[in-house]
Design a protein around this nucleic acid. Structure first.
Lengths: 271, 271
DNA sequence: AAATTTTATCACATAATGTGTTAACAATGG
DNA sequence: CCATTGTTAACACATTATGTGATAAAATTT
Protein backbone atom coordinates (compact mmCIF):
# COMPACT_ATOMS: atom_id res chain seq x y z
CA UNK A 1 0.00 0.00 0.00
CA UNK A 2 2.99 2.27 -0.07
CA UNK A 3 4.99 2.07 -3.25
CA UNK A 4 3.64 5.05 -5.09
CA UNK A 5 6.28 6.16 -7.47
CA UNK A 6 5.79 8.85 -9.99
CA UNK A 7 7.89 11.40 -11.69
CA UNK A 8 6.88 14.92 -10.85
CA UNK A 9 7.70 17.67 -13.34
CA UNK A 10 11.13 19.06 -12.77
CA UNK A 11 9.77 22.38 -11.55
CA UNK A 12 8.10 20.57 -8.68
CA UNK A 13 11.31 18.78 -7.83
CA UNK A 14 13.25 22.01 -7.85
CA UNK A 15 10.66 23.60 -5.62
CA UNK A 16 10.91 20.80 -3.11
CA UNK A 17 14.68 21.15 -3.06
CA UNK A 18 14.36 24.86 -2.43
CA UNK A 19 11.99 24.10 0.43
CA UNK A 20 14.40 21.58 1.87
CA UNK A 21 17.18 24.12 1.63
CA UNK A 22 15.12 26.78 3.32
CA UNK A 23 14.26 24.38 6.12
CA UNK A 24 17.90 23.46 6.62
CA UNK A 25 18.98 27.08 6.64
CA UNK A 26 16.34 27.99 9.19
CA UNK A 27 17.25 25.14 11.49
CA UNK A 28 20.99 25.22 10.92
CA UNK A 29 21.05 21.49 10.44
CA UNK A 30 18.70 18.55 10.04
CA UNK A 31 18.70 14.76 10.02
CA UNK A 32 18.38 13.28 6.57
CA UNK A 33 15.77 10.66 7.47
CA UNK A 34 13.64 13.31 9.17
CA UNK A 35 13.81 15.45 6.05
CA UNK A 36 12.70 12.53 3.94
CA UNK A 37 9.74 11.98 6.20
CA UNK A 38 8.82 15.63 6.45
CA UNK A 39 8.84 16.16 2.70
CA UNK A 40 7.13 12.87 1.97
CA UNK A 41 9.82 11.24 -0.11
CA UNK A 42 11.92 8.16 0.36
CA UNK A 43 15.27 8.29 2.05
CA UNK A 44 16.97 7.64 -1.24
CA UNK A 45 15.26 10.54 -2.94
CA UNK A 46 16.12 12.83 -0.07
CA UNK A 47 19.74 11.79 -0.47
CA UNK A 48 19.53 12.71 -4.10
CA UNK A 49 18.01 16.08 -3.30
CA UNK A 50 20.71 16.80 -0.77
CA UNK A 51 23.47 15.64 -3.07
CA UNK A 52 22.18 18.08 -5.61
CA UNK A 53 22.08 20.94 -3.13
CA UNK A 54 25.50 20.04 -1.77
CA UNK A 55 26.94 20.00 -5.27
CA UNK A 56 25.59 23.47 -5.81
CA UNK A 57 27.44 24.51 -2.68
CA UNK A 58 24.28 25.40 -0.79
CA UNK A 59 24.76 23.07 2.17
CA UNK A 60 27.10 20.41 3.51
CA UNK A 61 26.28 16.73 3.76
CA UNK A 62 27.56 15.10 6.91
CA UNK A 63 26.89 11.61 8.17
CA UNK A 64 23.19 11.16 8.77
CA UNK A 65 22.51 14.87 8.65
CA UNK A 66 23.13 18.01 6.67
CA UNK A 67 24.25 21.42 7.81
CA UNK A 68 23.80 24.90 6.42
CA UNK A 69 26.88 27.00 6.00
CA UNK A 70 27.55 29.47 8.79
CA UNK A 71 25.14 32.27 8.02
CA UNK A 72 27.06 35.16 6.54
CA UNK A 73 26.00 37.62 9.24
CA UNK A 74 22.40 37.60 8.09
CA UNK A 75 21.55 35.74 4.99
CA UNK A 76 22.98 33.02 2.87
CA UNK A 77 24.38 33.11 -0.62
CA UNK A 78 22.90 34.97 -3.53
CA UNK A 79 21.97 31.67 -5.10
CA UNK A 80 19.39 31.18 -2.40
CA UNK A 81 17.99 34.67 -2.30
CA UNK A 82 17.36 34.28 -5.98
CA UNK A 83 13.66 33.63 -5.98
CA UNK A 84 12.70 35.72 -2.97
CA UNK A 85 10.46 38.77 -3.20
CA UNK A 86 10.35 38.56 -6.94
CA UNK A 87 7.18 40.63 -7.23
CA UNK A 88 8.77 43.44 -5.28
CA UNK A 89 11.96 43.30 -7.29
CA UNK A 90 10.01 43.34 -10.54
CA UNK A 91 8.17 46.43 -9.40
CA UNK A 92 11.38 48.15 -8.40
CA UNK A 93 12.91 47.25 -11.75
CA UNK A 94 9.93 48.64 -13.64
CA UNK A 95 10.21 51.92 -11.78
CA UNK A 96 13.98 52.15 -12.07
CA UNK A 97 14.19 51.56 -15.80
CA UNK A 98 12.56 54.95 -16.30
CA UNK A 99 15.69 56.59 -14.94
CA UNK A 100 17.68 55.42 -17.95
CA UNK A 101 17.90 57.19 -21.27
CA UNK A 102 19.32 55.76 -24.46
CA UNK A 103 22.99 56.45 -24.97
CA UNK A 104 23.87 56.72 -21.33
CA UNK A 105 26.48 54.88 -19.36
CA UNK A 106 24.89 52.93 -16.55
CA UNK A 107 26.50 51.31 -13.55
CA UNK A 108 24.81 48.25 -12.13
CA UNK A 109 25.56 46.81 -8.77
CA UNK A 110 25.83 43.10 -8.13
CA UNK A 111 22.63 42.13 -6.37
CA UNK A 112 19.62 39.96 -7.03
CA UNK A 113 17.51 43.06 -6.51
CA UNK A 114 18.69 44.60 -9.75
CA UNK A 115 18.29 41.63 -12.09
CA UNK A 116 14.72 42.38 -13.09
CA UNK A 117 15.89 45.88 -13.95
CA UNK A 118 18.75 44.49 -16.00
CA UNK A 119 16.34 42.36 -17.96
CA UNK A 120 14.37 45.43 -18.89
CA UNK A 121 17.51 47.25 -19.95
CA UNK A 122 17.83 44.92 -22.91
CA UNK A 123 15.17 46.98 -24.66
CA UNK A 124 17.07 50.26 -24.44
CA UNK A 125 19.84 50.95 -26.88
CA UNK A 126 22.44 52.13 -27.36
CA UNK A 127 23.67 51.78 -23.82
CA UNK A 128 26.94 51.25 -22.03
CA UNK A 129 26.62 49.13 -18.95
CA UNK A 130 29.34 48.91 -16.34
CA UNK A 131 29.13 46.23 -13.69
CA UNK A 132 31.11 43.94 -11.45
CA UNK A 133 28.49 41.19 -11.73
CA UNK A 134 29.15 38.28 -14.06
CA UNK A 135 25.49 37.50 -14.02
CA UNK A 136 24.69 40.90 -15.46
CA UNK A 137 27.27 40.38 -18.18
CA UNK A 138 25.74 37.05 -19.02
CA UNK A 139 22.34 38.72 -19.46
CA UNK A 140 23.46 41.80 -21.35
CA UNK A 141 26.52 40.44 -23.12
CA UNK A 142 24.69 38.97 -26.11
CA UNK A 143 22.59 42.10 -26.66
CA UNK A 144 23.35 43.90 -29.85
CA UNK A 145 23.12 47.56 -28.95
CA UNK A 146 24.64 47.32 -25.50
CA UNK A 147 28.32 47.66 -24.71
CA UNK A 148 29.08 45.78 -21.56
CA UNK A 149 32.09 46.59 -19.42
CA UNK A 150 33.06 44.28 -16.64
CA UNK A 151 34.98 45.57 -13.66
CA UNK A 152 37.58 42.93 -12.96
CA UNK A 153 39.14 41.82 -9.72
CA UNK A 154 39.05 38.98 -7.27
CA UNK A 155 36.12 36.75 -8.13
CA UNK A 156 33.69 35.97 -5.37
CA UNK A 157 31.73 32.82 -6.04
CA UNK A 158 29.13 33.57 -3.40
CA UNK A 159 27.91 36.66 -5.20
CA UNK A 160 29.07 35.69 -8.68
CA UNK A 161 30.90 38.96 -9.05
CA UNK A 162 34.24 40.65 -8.57
CA UNK A 163 35.20 42.64 -5.53
CA UNK A 164 38.27 43.83 -3.69
CA UNK A 165 40.82 46.61 -4.14
CA UNK A 166 41.20 46.05 -7.88
CA UNK A 167 37.55 46.79 -8.36
CA UNK A 168 37.70 49.96 -6.28
CA UNK A 169 40.74 51.09 -8.27
CA UNK A 170 39.08 50.39 -11.57
CA UNK A 171 35.99 52.32 -10.54
CA UNK A 172 38.18 55.37 -10.06
CA UNK A 173 38.73 55.49 -13.82
CA UNK A 174 35.08 55.25 -14.69
CA UNK A 175 32.30 57.77 -14.89
CA UNK A 176 28.68 56.70 -15.31
CA UNK A 177 25.55 58.77 -15.82
CA UNK A 178 23.29 56.63 -13.68
CA UNK A 179 24.06 53.98 -11.14
CA UNK A 180 21.78 51.41 -9.58
CA UNK A 181 22.96 50.17 -6.23
CA UNK A 182 21.31 47.96 -3.69
CA UNK A 183 21.72 47.19 -0.02
CA UNK A 184 21.30 43.96 1.90
CA UNK A 185 20.27 45.76 5.08
CA UNK A 186 18.82 49.16 5.89
CA UNK A 187 18.08 50.51 9.34
CA UNK A 188 17.19 54.09 10.15
CA UNK A 189 18.39 55.21 6.77
CA UNK A 190 21.82 53.65 7.20
CA UNK A 191 23.02 51.00 4.76
CA UNK A 192 24.86 47.79 5.55
CA UNK A 193 26.53 44.83 3.89
CA UNK A 194 27.97 41.72 5.53
CA UNK A 195 31.15 41.71 3.43
CA UNK A 196 33.66 44.50 3.71
CA UNK A 197 34.83 44.37 0.11
CA UNK A 198 31.31 44.91 -1.11
CA UNK A 199 30.63 47.76 1.27
CA UNK A 200 33.77 49.45 -0.01
CA UNK A 201 32.73 48.75 -3.56
CA UNK A 202 29.37 50.42 -3.12
CA UNK A 203 31.03 53.49 -1.67
CA UNK A 204 33.47 53.67 -4.54
CA UNK A 205 30.78 53.13 -7.13
CA UNK A 206 28.73 55.99 -5.73
CA UNK A 207 31.68 58.28 -6.30
CA UNK A 208 31.94 57.32 -9.95
CA UNK A 209 28.30 57.83 -10.77
CA UNK A 210 26.56 61.11 -11.51
CA UNK A 211 23.04 60.15 -10.48
CA UNK A 212 22.84 57.46 -7.83
CA UNK A 213 19.73 55.37 -7.41
CA UNK A 214 19.25 53.04 -4.49
CA UNK A 215 16.96 50.02 -4.89
CA UNK A 216 15.70 48.23 -1.79
CA UNK A 217 12.77 45.94 -1.27
CA UNK A 218 10.91 46.00 2.03
CA UNK A 219 12.47 42.79 3.34
CA UNK A 220 15.79 44.54 3.82
CA UNK A 221 14.54 47.11 6.29
CA UNK A 222 15.05 47.02 10.01
CA UNK A 223 18.15 44.89 9.69
CA UNK A 224 21.81 45.59 9.95
CA UNK A 225 25.02 43.88 8.92
CA UNK A 226 28.64 44.29 9.89
CA UNK A 227 29.83 46.94 7.47
CA UNK A 228 28.10 50.26 6.88
CA UNK A 229 28.28 51.96 3.52
CA UNK A 230 26.82 55.41 3.85
CA UNK A 231 23.20 56.33 4.19
CA UNK A 232 20.18 56.93 2.01
CA UNK A 233 20.85 60.66 1.69
CA UNK A 234 24.03 59.84 -0.22
CA UNK A 235 21.76 58.78 -3.07
CA UNK A 236 19.85 61.02 -5.43
CA UNK A 237 16.86 58.74 -5.42
CA UNK A 238 15.70 55.86 -3.26
CA UNK A 239 13.16 53.43 -4.67
CA UNK A 240 11.32 51.11 -2.30
CA UNK A 241 8.17 49.02 -2.51
CA UNK A 242 4.91 49.81 -0.79
CA UNK A 243 5.33 47.26 1.95
CA UNK A 244 8.22 49.13 3.44
CA UNK A 245 7.61 50.02 7.12
CA UNK A 246 6.28 53.55 7.65
CA UNK A 247 8.84 54.46 10.25
CA UNK A 248 11.71 53.48 8.00
CA UNK A 249 10.35 55.68 5.25
CA UNK A 250 9.98 58.53 7.70
CA UNK A 251 13.54 58.07 8.88
CA UNK A 252 14.76 58.27 5.32
CA UNK A 253 12.82 61.44 4.58
CA UNK A 254 14.07 62.89 7.83
CA UNK A 255 17.60 62.39 6.54
CA UNK A 256 16.69 64.36 3.44
CA UNK A 257 16.45 61.48 1.00
CA UNK A 258 14.19 61.56 -2.05
CA UNK A 259 12.10 58.43 -1.60
CA UNK A 260 9.83 56.94 -4.21
CA UNK A 261 7.44 54.22 -3.13
CA UNK A 262 6.26 51.89 -5.89
CA UNK A 263 2.96 50.06 -5.58
CA UNK A 264 2.72 46.30 -5.84
CA UNK A 265 0.18 45.09 -8.33
CA UNK A 266 -0.81 41.86 -6.69
CA UNK A 267 -0.32 40.94 -3.06
CA UNK A 268 2.81 38.87 -2.90
CA UNK A 269 2.74 35.72 -0.83
CA UNK A 270 4.74 36.24 2.29
CA UNK A 271 7.44 33.97 3.55
CA UNK B 1 6.55 4.44 -47.04
CA UNK B 2 8.31 7.52 -45.83
CA UNK B 3 7.06 8.84 -42.51
CA UNK B 4 9.71 7.49 -40.21
CA UNK B 5 9.63 9.60 -37.14
CA UNK B 6 11.76 8.88 -34.17
CA UNK B 7 13.47 10.85 -31.52
CA UNK B 8 17.22 10.58 -31.72
CA UNK B 9 19.21 11.15 -28.53
CA UNK B 10 19.99 14.78 -28.03
CA UNK B 11 23.69 14.22 -28.68
CA UNK B 12 22.83 13.07 -32.18
CA UNK B 13 20.67 16.12 -32.74
CA UNK B 14 23.42 18.42 -31.56
CA UNK B 15 25.90 16.72 -33.83
CA UNK B 16 23.66 17.16 -36.83
CA UNK B 17 23.29 20.83 -36.01
CA UNK B 18 27.03 21.22 -35.80
CA UNK B 19 27.33 19.54 -39.17
CA UNK B 20 24.74 21.86 -40.64
CA UNK B 21 26.57 24.83 -39.25
CA UNK B 22 29.88 23.64 -40.64
CA UNK B 23 28.31 23.17 -44.03
CA UNK B 24 26.83 26.66 -43.97
CA UNK B 25 30.12 28.19 -42.89
CA UNK B 26 32.00 26.43 -45.64
CA UNK B 27 29.56 27.47 -48.30
CA UNK B 28 28.82 30.90 -46.93
CA UNK B 29 25.11 30.35 -47.36
CA UNK B 30 22.67 27.60 -48.19
CA UNK B 31 19.03 27.06 -49.08
CA UNK B 32 16.98 25.68 -46.25
CA UNK B 33 15.14 23.05 -48.29
CA UNK B 34 18.43 21.81 -49.68
CA UNK B 35 19.82 21.48 -46.21
CA UNK B 36 16.81 19.47 -45.10
CA UNK B 37 17.28 17.13 -48.01
CA UNK B 38 21.03 16.81 -47.57
CA UNK B 39 20.77 15.97 -43.90
CA UNK B 40 17.79 13.70 -44.32
CA UNK B 41 15.30 15.53 -42.17
CA UNK B 42 12.04 17.22 -42.92
CA UNK B 43 11.86 20.87 -43.76
CA UNK B 44 10.23 21.57 -40.45
CA UNK B 45 13.02 19.93 -38.53
CA UNK B 46 15.63 21.79 -40.49
CA UNK B 47 13.85 25.02 -39.62
CA UNK B 48 14.06 24.03 -36.00
CA UNK B 49 17.75 23.26 -36.29
CA UNK B 50 18.43 26.57 -37.94
CA UNK B 51 16.30 28.49 -35.46
CA UNK B 52 18.39 26.97 -32.73
CA UNK B 53 21.66 27.89 -34.43
CA UNK B 54 20.41 31.37 -35.20
CA UNK B 55 19.37 31.89 -31.61
CA UNK B 56 22.87 30.95 -30.54
CA UNK B 57 24.13 33.64 -32.87
CA UNK B 58 25.96 31.21 -35.12
CA UNK B 59 24.25 32.08 -38.38
CA UNK B 60 21.52 34.27 -39.81
CA UNK B 61 18.19 33.05 -41.10
CA UNK B 62 17.05 34.81 -44.20
CA UNK B 63 14.06 33.98 -46.33
CA UNK B 64 14.47 30.54 -47.82
CA UNK B 65 18.12 30.37 -46.97
CA UNK B 66 20.62 30.91 -44.20
CA UNK B 67 23.91 32.74 -44.23
CA UNK B 68 27.05 32.42 -42.16
CA UNK B 69 28.39 35.57 -40.58
CA UNK B 70 31.21 37.19 -42.51
CA UNK B 71 34.08 34.90 -41.58
CA UNK B 72 36.15 36.71 -39.02
CA UNK B 73 39.26 36.44 -41.19
CA UNK B 74 39.41 32.70 -40.79
CA UNK B 75 37.15 31.03 -38.37
CA UNK B 76 33.89 31.75 -36.72
CA UNK B 77 33.03 32.27 -33.09
CA UNK B 78 34.45 30.37 -30.18
CA UNK B 79 31.05 28.79 -29.71
CA UNK B 80 31.59 26.85 -32.87
CA UNK B 81 35.20 25.87 -32.32
CA UNK B 82 34.04 24.39 -29.04
CA UNK B 83 33.87 20.76 -29.93
CA UNK B 84 36.64 20.68 -32.53
CA UNK B 85 39.88 18.76 -32.10
CA UNK B 86 38.94 17.79 -28.60
CA UNK B 87 41.34 14.88 -28.49
CA UNK B 88 44.22 17.14 -29.39
CA UNK B 89 43.21 19.75 -26.87
CA UNK B 90 42.90 17.14 -24.14
CA UNK B 91 46.39 15.92 -24.91
CA UNK B 92 47.78 19.44 -24.85
CA UNK B 93 46.04 20.07 -21.55
CA UNK B 94 47.44 16.91 -20.02
CA UNK B 95 50.96 17.92 -21.01
CA UNK B 96 50.56 21.53 -19.94
CA UNK B 97 49.21 20.84 -16.47
CA UNK B 98 52.65 19.48 -15.56
CA UNK B 99 54.04 22.99 -15.86
CA UNK B 100 52.02 24.14 -12.87
CA UNK B 101 53.07 23.78 -9.24
CA UNK B 102 50.84 24.28 -6.23
CA UNK B 103 50.89 27.79 -4.87
CA UNK B 104 51.74 29.50 -8.12
CA UNK B 105 49.97 32.31 -9.89
CA UNK B 106 48.85 31.18 -13.31
CA UNK B 107 47.63 33.25 -16.21
CA UNK B 108 45.19 31.63 -18.59
CA UNK B 109 44.33 32.97 -21.97
CA UNK B 110 40.83 32.99 -23.35
CA UNK B 111 40.72 30.19 -25.89
CA UNK B 112 38.91 26.92 -26.32
CA UNK B 113 42.33 25.29 -26.55
CA UNK B 114 43.00 25.86 -22.88
CA UNK B 115 39.72 24.65 -21.40
CA UNK B 116 40.78 21.04 -20.97
CA UNK B 117 43.83 22.34 -19.13
CA UNK B 118 41.67 24.51 -16.93
CA UNK B 119 39.56 21.50 -16.01
CA UNK B 120 42.65 19.71 -14.83
CA UNK B 121 43.73 22.70 -12.79
CA UNK B 122 40.85 22.10 -10.41
CA UNK B 123 42.90 19.34 -8.82
CA UNK B 124 45.86 21.57 -7.93
CA UNK B 125 45.65 23.78 -4.88
CA UNK B 126 46.33 26.30 -3.66
CA UNK B 127 46.48 28.26 -6.86
CA UNK B 128 45.85 31.78 -8.05
CA UNK B 129 44.44 31.94 -11.54
CA UNK B 130 44.35 35.15 -13.53
CA UNK B 131 42.29 35.26 -16.70
CA UNK B 132 40.22 37.44 -18.96
CA UNK B 133 37.89 34.58 -19.80
CA UNK B 134 34.50 34.39 -18.11
CA UNK B 135 34.30 30.77 -19.04
CA UNK B 136 37.43 30.02 -17.06
CA UNK B 137 36.02 31.88 -14.09
CA UNK B 138 32.84 29.87 -14.32
CA UNK B 139 34.86 26.64 -14.19
CA UNK B 140 37.33 27.61 -11.49
CA UNK B 141 35.22 30.04 -9.48
CA UNK B 142 33.48 27.44 -7.33
CA UNK B 143 36.72 25.60 -6.53
CA UNK B 144 37.72 25.79 -2.94
CA UNK B 145 41.49 26.14 -3.02
CA UNK B 146 41.70 28.38 -6.06
CA UNK B 147 41.64 32.15 -6.02
CA UNK B 148 40.32 33.42 -9.30
CA UNK B 149 41.09 36.89 -10.57
CA UNK B 150 39.25 38.22 -13.54
CA UNK B 151 40.79 40.88 -15.73
CA UNK B 152 37.99 43.28 -16.48
CA UNK B 153 37.34 45.40 -19.51
CA UNK B 154 35.06 45.59 -22.50
CA UNK B 155 33.17 42.33 -22.76
CA UNK B 156 33.31 40.49 -26.04
CA UNK B 157 30.42 38.13 -26.48
CA UNK B 158 32.05 36.28 -29.35
CA UNK B 159 34.87 35.02 -27.18
CA UNK B 160 33.08 35.25 -23.85
CA UNK B 161 35.90 37.27 -22.40
CA UNK B 162 37.14 40.79 -21.82
CA UNK B 163 39.55 42.62 -24.09
CA UNK B 164 40.59 46.12 -24.97
CA UNK B 165 42.82 48.78 -23.42
CA UNK B 166 41.47 48.26 -19.90
CA UNK B 167 42.65 44.68 -20.00
CA UNK B 168 46.10 45.62 -21.25
CA UNK B 169 46.36 48.22 -18.50
CA UNK B 170 45.28 45.80 -15.82
CA UNK B 171 47.79 43.23 -17.01
CA UNK B 172 50.51 45.75 -16.34
CA UNK B 173 49.82 45.48 -12.62
CA UNK B 174 49.96 41.72 -12.56
CA UNK B 175 52.77 39.25 -12.38
CA UNK B 176 52.18 35.53 -12.91
CA UNK B 177 54.55 32.59 -12.60
CA UNK B 178 53.23 30.65 -15.55
CA UNK B 179 51.05 31.71 -18.44
CA UNK B 180 49.18 29.58 -20.94
CA UNK B 181 48.46 31.34 -24.15
CA UNK B 182 47.06 30.09 -27.41
CA UNK B 183 46.98 31.25 -30.99
CA UNK B 184 44.30 30.96 -33.63
CA UNK B 185 46.81 30.85 -36.47
CA UNK B 186 50.48 29.98 -36.79
CA UNK B 187 52.57 30.18 -39.93
CA UNK B 188 56.33 29.88 -40.08
CA UNK B 189 56.59 30.38 -36.36
CA UNK B 190 54.65 33.66 -36.45
CA UNK B 191 51.43 33.99 -34.45
CA UNK B 192 48.20 35.63 -35.58
CA UNK B 193 44.77 36.56 -34.33
CA UNK B 194 41.86 38.01 -36.29
CA UNK B 195 40.97 40.61 -33.65
CA UNK B 196 43.35 43.39 -32.80
CA UNK B 197 42.35 43.68 -29.15
CA UNK B 198 43.16 40.06 -28.58
CA UNK B 199 46.49 40.23 -30.35
CA UNK B 200 47.42 43.16 -28.13
CA UNK B 201 46.18 41.27 -25.11
CA UNK B 202 48.39 38.29 -25.82
CA UNK B 203 51.40 40.53 -26.20
CA UNK B 204 50.65 42.28 -22.92
CA UNK B 205 50.03 39.02 -21.11
CA UNK B 206 53.36 37.64 -22.20
CA UNK B 207 55.05 40.60 -20.57
CA UNK B 208 53.34 39.93 -17.25
CA UNK B 209 54.22 36.27 -17.07
CA UNK B 210 57.51 34.76 -15.99
CA UNK B 211 57.29 31.48 -17.87
CA UNK B 212 55.24 31.61 -21.06
CA UNK B 213 53.76 28.47 -22.52
CA UNK B 214 52.12 28.44 -25.93
CA UNK B 215 49.48 25.82 -26.68
CA UNK B 216 48.53 25.12 -30.28
CA UNK B 217 46.84 22.16 -31.86
CA UNK B 218 47.83 21.11 -35.38
CA UNK B 219 44.73 22.60 -37.03
CA UNK B 220 46.05 26.11 -36.44
CA UNK B 221 49.21 25.72 -38.49
CA UNK B 222 49.77 27.03 -41.96
CA UNK B 223 47.18 29.75 -41.50
CA UNK B 224 47.39 33.44 -40.85
CA UNK B 225 45.06 36.14 -39.62
CA UNK B 226 45.12 39.91 -39.73
CA UNK B 227 47.02 40.77 -36.60
CA UNK B 228 50.38 39.30 -35.64
CA UNK B 229 51.33 38.91 -32.00
CA UNK B 230 54.96 37.90 -31.85
CA UNK B 231 56.46 34.56 -32.71
CA UNK B 232 57.06 31.21 -31.07
CA UNK B 233 60.51 32.16 -29.82
CA UNK B 234 58.86 34.72 -27.55
CA UNK B 235 57.62 31.78 -25.51
CA UNK B 236 59.60 29.62 -23.14
CA UNK B 237 57.84 26.49 -24.26
CA UNK B 238 55.63 25.56 -27.18
CA UNK B 239 53.38 22.54 -26.88
CA UNK B 240 51.86 21.05 -30.02
CA UNK B 241 50.26 17.75 -30.92
CA UNK B 242 51.87 15.06 -33.02
CA UNK B 243 49.85 15.80 -36.14
CA UNK B 244 51.55 19.15 -36.57
CA UNK B 245 53.21 19.49 -40.00
CA UNK B 246 56.93 18.67 -40.01
CA UNK B 247 57.94 21.83 -41.78
CA UNK B 248 56.12 24.01 -39.27
CA UNK B 249 57.91 22.28 -36.42
CA UNK B 250 61.22 22.76 -38.20
CA UNK B 251 60.48 26.42 -38.73
CA UNK B 252 59.77 26.85 -35.02
CA UNK B 253 63.00 25.11 -34.01
CA UNK B 254 64.85 27.20 -36.56
CA UNK B 255 63.61 30.28 -34.73
CA UNK B 256 65.03 28.90 -31.50
CA UNK B 257 61.81 27.82 -29.86
CA UNK B 258 61.62 24.96 -27.38
CA UNK B 259 58.99 22.72 -28.90
CA UNK B 260 57.35 19.76 -27.20
CA UNK B 261 55.28 17.42 -29.31
CA UNK B 262 52.67 15.42 -27.42
CA UNK B 263 51.45 12.12 -28.79
CA UNK B 264 47.78 11.44 -29.42
CA UNK B 265 46.49 8.27 -27.83
CA UNK B 266 43.86 7.36 -30.36
CA UNK B 267 43.66 8.52 -33.91
CA UNK B 268 41.19 11.36 -33.94
CA UNK B 269 38.62 11.49 -36.68
CA UNK B 270 39.54 14.13 -39.14
CA UNK B 271 37.26 16.81 -40.39
C1' DA C 1 -3.67 37.31 -56.18
C1' DA C 2 -0.24 33.64 -56.67
C1' DA C 3 3.71 31.54 -55.18
C1' DT C 4 6.81 30.73 -51.69
C1' DT C 5 8.29 30.44 -47.10
C1' DT C 6 7.48 30.40 -42.31
C1' DT C 7 5.06 29.23 -38.16
C1' DA C 8 1.53 26.71 -35.37
C1' DT C 9 -0.48 22.58 -34.02
C1' DC C 10 -1.02 17.83 -33.75
C1' DA C 11 0.03 12.94 -32.85
C1' DC C 12 3.50 10.01 -31.99
C1' DA C 13 7.87 7.84 -30.67
C1' DT C 14 11.39 7.65 -27.69
C1' DA C 15 14.88 9.65 -24.73
C1' DA C 16 15.69 11.60 -20.24
C1' DT C 17 14.89 11.56 -15.59
C1' DG C 18 12.74 11.24 -10.90
C1' DT C 19 11.15 7.54 -7.86
C1' DG C 20 11.15 3.64 -4.48
C1' DT C 21 12.88 -0.97 -3.43
C1' DT C 22 16.36 -4.00 -2.52
C1' DA C 23 20.81 -5.16 -1.70
C1' DA C 24 25.65 -4.31 -1.52
C1' DC C 25 28.92 -1.32 0.56
C1' DA C 26 31.18 1.81 3.94
C1' DA C 27 31.66 4.01 8.39
C1' DT C 28 31.09 4.35 13.08
C1' DG C 29 30.73 2.80 17.93
C1' DG C 30 30.87 -0.27 21.32
C1' DC D 1 35.38 -7.71 16.02
C1' DC D 2 30.65 -7.44 15.34
C1' DA D 3 26.46 -4.66 15.36
C1' DT D 4 24.46 -0.67 13.95
C1' DT D 5 23.75 2.96 11.09
C1' DG D 6 24.31 5.54 7.04
C1' DT D 7 25.47 5.68 1.95
C1' DT D 8 25.71 4.21 -2.70
C1' DA D 9 24.58 1.10 -6.75
C1' DA D 10 21.49 -1.29 -9.56
C1' DC D 11 16.95 -2.07 -10.98
C1' DA D 12 12.24 -1.57 -12.73
C1' DC D 13 8.90 1.58 -13.43
C1' DA D 14 6.26 5.81 -14.25
C1' DT D 15 6.04 9.96 -16.31
C1' DT D 16 7.79 14.13 -18.28
C1' DA D 17 10.44 16.29 -21.81
C1' DT D 18 11.54 16.66 -26.47
C1' DG D 19 12.55 15.66 -31.39
C1' DT D 20 9.97 14.36 -35.47
C1' DG D 21 6.96 14.67 -39.68
C1' DA D 22 2.36 15.84 -41.59
C1' DT D 23 -0.80 19.15 -42.31
C1' DA D 24 -2.78 23.45 -42.24
C1' DA D 25 -2.79 28.28 -41.27
C1' DA D 26 -0.30 32.61 -41.49
C1' DA D 27 2.98 35.70 -43.28
C1' DT D 28 5.96 37.44 -46.94
C1' DT D 29 7.46 38.20 -51.47
C1' DT D 30 6.69 38.66 -56.33
Amino acid sequence: MSSRRARPPEAVVEERRQDVLRHVIEHGEARIDELGERFGVSLMTMHRDLDDLAERGLLRKLRGKVAAFPALTMEIAARFREGLHLTEKEALGAAAVGEISAGQTVFVDCSTTVFPLVNRMREIEPLTVVTNSLRVVRILGPCQGIETVLIGGRYNNEFDSCAGPDVVDALGDIRADVGFISATAVAGGRLFHPVQDYAALKNAARGSVHRNVLLVDHSKFGKTATYAHGEVSDYDLVIVDSRTPEDEIDAMIELGAAVRVVALEETAKEE
